[in-house]
Amino acid sequence: MTEITVNGRIHEVAVEPETPLLWVLRDTLGMTGTKYGCGIGQCGACTVMIDGQATRSCQVPVESLGAAKVVTIDAIEDDEVGRRVVDAWVSVQVAQCGYCQSGQVMAATALLKGNPRPTDRDIADAMTGLCRCGTYNRIAEAVRLAAG
């Protein structure tokens, strides 16, 4: 049994210690808002916040978490910055297929929590998730809008 803290709740999960957090979230805890895209840390669809840092959950063995606090897209609107990011995403009409946007919103929230007034360079450095619908310009616009 491994104990992990997700969205403020402690869960006991019976999985192999090397199991990536992504699959614990999706298959063990049934929290499917976090997406599987590539499994090699390239696409960013699985991005969650771990102790406030945007992290690709497909690359995080569950055993490495310890007492770290995981926040997923499922709880994004409980966070004040997260809610602002979501509102900006809706306002700018970023999403098309929407599959990558869970990860994009998490990356944007983590960015703004650590850096409330990011420059365009900061946005480019932080927002590295792939989007096959090509919504990159709107993503940047929404981050700027959420930053206010």
């Binding site: 808002g33 997406k35 897209i73």
Partner: peptide, 20 residues
Amino acid sequence: GRLDARAKSTGKTVYPIDQK
């Protein structure tokens, strides 16, 4: 505005991969 904009910005849209 798109009807699915908020659901897609909050991880609530259920794609084939999310079905159970």
